[in-house]
Simulated assay, not measured.
Amino acid sequence: MRRYKRTVVGLAFATTAVTGVTGWASGNSQRPVTGPPPGTAAWVGDRSLGRALPDPATTAPGRVADFFATLSPGARQDLVRRHPLVVGNLDGVPVKLRYRANSLALRGTPHERLARPGRQILAFDPRGRGQVVEVYGDLERARHVAVVVPGADIDARTFDRADDPYGTPAGMAKSLRAAAGSPTAVIAWTGYTTPVGLGLDAAQGDLAEAGAERLTRFTEGLAARGTPRPSLFCHSYGSVVCGLAADDVEASDIVVLGSPGMRAGSVADLRTDARVWAAKDPSDWISKVPNVRLLGLGHGNDPAAPGFGAQRVPAERAQGHTGYFAPGTDSLHTFAAIAQGEVQ
């Protein structure tokens, strides 16, 4: 009975800690954004090209890529103008068309800053709290690709907070790109609904399950465009997403950092052919989160524990829960080597 009570108390603490904030407060339960992009009905009903357009709800990214390959430059641009939200969010569409479509879709929104010259927005979905995917580097010519999958409290508004540069997907991606160099393109992927506050969402797997499906389709879209298999860098709750996606996602490496668990008992349970890595610095409060699962709460074993079977990433010089991508850290140095395929 004492052990059971300790576990329940530990899970209550885990609900607090996983969100990355201190103290108790009221959480906000989130409903995941799923399904095809906004504007799909108008897109499906469009016969301006004299033929049906691929249904975003049912067409695989590879078939989308094949369809766009048959279009003239003028026809492609016409679809961008008529359906920017669909073209900008449809996996398999040529990269530069998506950049153009999302630039148009962002105009007049509260997130118009994302459309500033030089930014390469690969996806923008305004539903819910907003989802954003941004590319750093030349994705079409990159020899190596990395994808940063963030954790809780990240959305279109907090995607690139200036006051927490290495705790946001934009800051993590910029730092990794600088460390890895120009042959590597890095994608900041906030393509799922993340937990907010201190509700049960952060200790449950519902949002991660929805995110895993979207992450899998996203990597399928990269493969359809001939992009190299990416390495995934999954922070905090993002590692739960990557754990649930591991057996389907197109990835060369799965790197988890500050992870509360991957909803798996070991690397073998992930059923992936990707290499699995784990980093946890000594000062990260995530170490205080009990690695248990009970009644749907908690995310299971610690990926950084020796028994899990992941390759360990040194992180002694990282500080806190959001310091893994800080310049000069051993963790960032190793991340860059993994992204470049230099670590065996």
Rank of each mutant, 00 (worst) to 15 (best):
R2H: 15
L11Q: 03
F13P: 03
A17R: 14
V18I: 15
T19D: 12
T19F: 00
G23P: 12
G27V: 05
N28P: 05
N28M: 09
R31N: 15
V33R: 01
V33Y: 06
T34Y: 06
P36D: 03
G39Q: 02
A41G: 02
W43C: 08
V44F: 03
G45A: 14
D46S: 08
R47W: 10
A52W: 09
A52E: 15
A52Y: 03
D66H: 09
T70W: 03
S72M: 04
R82G: 02
N89M: 02
L90F: 15
P94D: 02
P94V: 02
V95N: 03
L97E: 13
T109W: 10
R113F: 13
P117V: 12
I121K: 11
F124Q: 10
P126G: 08
G130T: 14
V132A: 07
E134T: 10
D138S: 09
A142K: 00
H144T: 09
A146Y: 10
A146K: 04
G151Q: 01
A152P: 06
R157V: 14
F159V: 02
R161S: 15
D164P: 02
D164S: 08
Y166M: 07
G167E: 14
P169S: 02
A170K: 10
G171A: 04
A178H: 14
A180F: 05
I187R: 08
G191T: 03
G191H: 01
T193W: 01
V196Y: 14
G197P: 10
G197D: 03
A202N: 05
D206C: 04
L207T: 01
A210L: 04
L215K: 12
L215G: 09
T216Q: 09
A224T: 09
L232F: 11
H235Q: 08
S236R: 05
V241D: 01
C242Q: 04
D248I: 00
D248Y: 10
V249N: 11
E250Q: 14
A251T: 12
I254W: 12
L257M: 14
P260R: 00
G261P: 05
M262V: 07
A268V: 07
L270S: 12
R271A: 13
D273C: 04
A274R: 07
R275C: 10
A279K: 06
K288P: 03
V289N: 00
V289F: 00
V292F: 02
V292T: 14
L294W: 14
G296N: 11
H299S: 03
G300F: 00
P303I: 01
P303E: 09
A304P: 10
G307Q: 06
F308N: 08
F308S: 05
R312E: 13
V313F: 11
P314G: 07
A315G: 12
E316F: 09
E316W: 10
A318G: 13
A318K: 05
G320C: 04
G320N: 05
G320L: 04
H321T: 01
Y324T: 10
A326P: 06
T329S: 07
S331V: 02
H333S: 13
T334D: 07
F335N: 12
A337Y: 09
Q340N: 15
G341S: 05
E342K: 13
V343Y: 05
